[in-house]
């Protein structure tokens, strides 16, 4: 039997918001250590990797490893029935055909239960190699979302150039060009407001704006986002999820034909 209780149910709602526009369906792999999800978008340009550790849940039990294939549009309908201050419990039997979502109000006066049919998804998992990235940037997630939104008005692609002086996001299109430069923060009161660059060597890479905008839907999960870049390999955009885990997005670069 599988059971996972999260007092901060709003976290699961935010997680779903962060992946539902990129993925139509995904397998939730549940084991003693926690829940993992890995899936590519339909175009196979990006990959979502979500980890929720069992010790981050308020109660967690997983007697046997199980994989729950879910249609994320259906899961979104169910999550809309959950109040932001409600407690979520996910439950399933071993070898399940369905998963149950139980939503409890904080005072326990109201309990809602929704049972969703599972799908058999024949999804391959990709092996993600350990990589020492040439540049790792930590910056406020709201600032990253804003830059992606602003620059995607001008063109389909965004160039991210990172050097020791700072990071430059730029784009060009029919109406003209735009760029945003961020300098590394010299002193800051709050670490989550800082721009921090760890650089081994400068990197310049080009990415499709529409995916970056999709990744930015994870902004409510964390005040900080980290971008990891190396020449000619996928970008990693990571949002930590409080004490429970992270969502990482991998995006294949655009490369000269």
């Amino acid at each position: 039997m599988f059971e996972a209780r999260l007092v901060q149910g709003a976290l699961l709602k935010k997680i779903l918001e962060a992946i539902k526009d990129l993925l139509t369906e995904a397998s939730w792999d549940c084991a003693q250590g926690g829940i993992q999800l890995q899936a590519m978008d339909n175009s196979h340009v990006s990959l979502v990797s979500l980890t929720l550790r069992s010790d981050g849940f308020d109660k967690y039990r997983c007697d046997r490893n199980l994989t729950m294939g879910m249609n994320l549009a259906s899961m979104t309908k169910i999550m809309k029935c959950c109040g932001n201050d409600e407690i979520i419990t996910m439950k399933a039997q071993d070898e399940p055909d369905t998963v149950t979502f139980m939503f409890e109000s904080k005072n326990g006066d109201k309990i809602s239960e929704y049972e969703m049919k599972l799908m058999n998804l024949d999804q391959d998992h990709l092996g993600i190699p350990e990589t020492d990235y040439a540049c790792v940037i930590k910056m406020p997630s709201g600032e990253f979302a804003r830059i992606c939104r602003d620059l995607s008005q001008f063109g389909e692609s965004m160039v991210i150039a990172c050097s020791k002086n700072g990071i430059k996001f730029s784009t060009s299109g029919d109406i003209g060009t735009g760029n945003v430069k961020l300098a590394q923060t010299s002193s800051v009161d709050k670490e989550e407001e800082a721009v921090i660059i760890e650089m081994q060597e400068p990197v310049t890479l080009t990415f499709a704006c529409k995916y970056l905008n999709n990744f930015a839907k994870a902004t409510p999960l964390s005040p900080v986002v980290s971008l990891s870049l190396s020449p000619d390999v996928p970008l990693v955009v990571e949002y930590k999820i409080e004490d429970i885990g992270y969502v990482r997005y991998y995006l294949a670069p655009k490369i000269e034909d």
Binding site: M40, S43, H44, V45, S46, L47, D124, H125, L126, G127, I128, P129, S157, T206, A208, V233, P234, Y250, L251, A252, P253, K254, I255, E256, D257
Partner: peptide
């Protein structure tokens, strides 16, 4: 011009 690559060309299947 630059072409979009696929994520599976960077990460092998398990």
């Amino acid at each position: 011009s630059k072409g979009q690559t696929r994520i599976s060309s960077f990460f092998g299947r398990n």
